[in-house]
């Protein structure tokens, strides 16, 4: 993992470094395909597109704000209890997501409630807090969180796209492939996400040789 250490000099709001923080996790330092974190939930929620998108939004929110809050508190949090403190921050945000969904969109809350709770255990979120937010300034940490959340979400959506398309012949529940298409049940199984992830990693690494050494 390539972490950028912040210099004390005055920095622009959207300088080169900031952009790098936001864009890097999307492909070259993607949490799932390069850092290989958060694979568990990538397998679980990606059989349909819609839940994957809501999950993405939720993770981007939690990841961004938990990074921000942790970074704000980084000088107050005692080293001995920092993991617990991080966990509490994440759990609080996840609870807020859950309550907001209940308030604004109850049917989606019903559909996703199990998975929303699982964001707490998503290793990407805690990994970013421990690796980045504890040692960097709030704005940078916030960008890093957003970048990693979106990087995670992109993979989720790509995997869900293929799984729903070939597993059921639909996208967002609407029939896309012709009626005669015989749904491939393997794609509905969690294992299919492994295959798609592997192909994604394969393509990614054959295009960017530098990644091969990192793993």
């Amino acid at each position: 993992m390539a972490e950028t250490k912040v210099k004390e000099a005055k920095e622009p709001l959207f300088g080169k470094k900031e952009r790098k923080l936001l864009v890097d996790p999307l492909l070259d330092n993607n949490p799932i395909t390069v850092q290989v974190l958060g694979v568990c939930s990538a397998l679980a929620v990606t059989s349909l597109l819609m839940p994957s998108i809501v999950m993405t939004v939720a993770v981007v929110f939690v990841c961004g704000f938990s990074n921000l809050i942790t970074s704000l508190l980084r000088n107050i949090i005692p080293n001995e209890v920092r993991l617990i403190a991080q966990l509490i921050i994440i759990a609080t945000l996840v609870t807020i997501v859950e309550l907001s969904l209940k308030y604004f969109d109850y049917p989606t809350y019903k559909e996703l409630s199990v998975y929303i709770g699982l964001i707490i255990t998503n290793c990407i979120v805690m990994g970013r807090l421990e690796a980045f937010a504890m040692g960097n300034k709030p704005w940078k940490s916030f960008l890093d969180g957003l970048g990693n959340g979106v990087g995670y979400g992109i993979i989720l959506i790509v995997v869900a796209f293929f799984r729903e398309l070939f597993g059921k012949g639909t996208l967002f529940g609407a029939q896309i492939l012709p009626e005669g298409y015989f749904a491939n049940n393997l794609m509905v199984m969690p294992a299919a996400a492994m295959f798609i992830l592997a192909v994604f990693i394969w393509i990614q690494r054959s295009r960017n040789k530098e990644l091969v050494d990192i793993s």
């Binding site: 609080t92 609870t95 807020i96 309550l99 907001s100 209940k102 308030y103 109850y106």
Partner: peptide
């Protein structure tokens, strides 16, 4: 969290 819950509880119950 208690505050947040109390603010959203009524609507959430109707939604349910």
């Amino acid at each position: 969290l208690t505050g947040f819950r109390m603010a959203t509880a009524e609507q959430a119950e109707i939604n349910e």
